[in-house]
Design a protein around this nucleic acid. Structure first.
Length: 273
DNA sequence: ACTCAGGCTACGA
DNA sequence: TCGTAGCCTGAG
């Protein structure tokens, strides 16, 4: 296969802007009217025109998986929009899709996300790839677990990721030794899958759910950060509607983005004391 | 200068 | 089993 081929995917309603910058991934940049990113071992350039996404740099199968073509967002949004709050969140940024990233990448980036802000996370991730990743055509691929065997906490000093370095080193160990079973994570009951990941130091419920949702295709995993918790307390004191639960993670992404970006909670900031 | 960020661990009650 | 102080670092 020629990786320089331009591949077109039909992706109705897709917004690269909202999808790439709604906080689920950290490696896309705006460039030349499109987006420059790295998927697996490949540097990829993406452009969106109407309902068509064009991509060059990687194969079609890889793209279909990464953009989760198997999930029908039109149907999903119809379901979500029967709920008043979700209807508002979805219409705020209807072009969001939850990406299916590699498990290791999702876990590592969300370990780095804790008590941290997005620009700085992106910086740490770039330094990490720069230090340990293979060349991917002008950018660096996200390092594979194998490439990190023997990497210790002190080797991570250049990342300037602070107390998270020890957590990363622990995670590398689990992956290098093959002690994280991706297939199991995909089929196990949610709490068991979460427990497997939470053996890693620095991985609590939130990070585990992010890894499952973004890195293992578990649409039922429901990461609750401060923003989503605010949404839950305000609009869903009794929890999400039952028919949403199998897709709670995707709903979460709309709720999260809405909570952070709509300004709904902005006034609450100064209102303490 | 100072707060706070997409949590977690460790420790105290 | 609860609740919470402290943590590296740097952006705002």
């Amino acid at each position: 296969m020629d990786l320089s081929d331009v591949i077109e995917l039909r992706l109705p309603g897709f917004s690269a802007e909202d999808t790439f910058f709604c906080g689920q991934c950290f490696r896309w940049r705006r460039a030349d009217g499109g987006y420059d990113g790295v998927i697996g071992a490949n540097r990829v350039f993406v452009r969106v025109c109407g309902d068509t996404l064009t991509a060059e740099g990687c194969g079609e199968e890889q793209l279909r998986e990464y953009f989760d073509l198997g999930t029908d967002y039109t149907a999903l949004q119809a379901l979500f929009c029967r709920d008043e709050t979700l209807r508002r969140a979805v219409s705020f940024a209807p072009g969001i899709r939850v990406l299916r990233q590699p498990l290791f990448e999702a876990l590592v980036t969300f370990i780095l996300s804790q008590n941290n802000n997005i620009p700085r996370i992106a910086g740490i991730v770039e330094r990490f790839c720069g230090c340990f990743g293979e060349d991917a055509g002008g950018r660096r691929a996200f390092p594979t677990p194998c490439a990190l065997s023997g990497i210790a906490e002190q080797d991570l000093a250049p990342l300037r990721c602070g107390f998270r370095a020890g957590y990363l080193a622990d995670a590398f160990g689990y992956f290098c030794r093959g002690e994280i079973d991706e297939q199991a994570l995909r089929r196990l009951p949610l709490d068991e899958a979460r427990a497997q990941l939470m053996r890693i130091r620095g991985v609590g419920p939130k990070v585990a759910d992010c890894a499952l949702l973004f890195g293992a295709g578990r649409h039922d995993a429901f990461p609750q950060d401060v923003w989503v918790r605010r949404m839950m307390q305000t609009f869903y004191p009794r929890g999400l509607p039952d028919d949403i639960l199998p897709y709670a993670g995707i709903a979460q992404q709309y709720l999260f983005h809405y909570a952070r970006s709509s300004g709904f909670f902005a006034a609450a900031k100064g209102a303490r004391s």
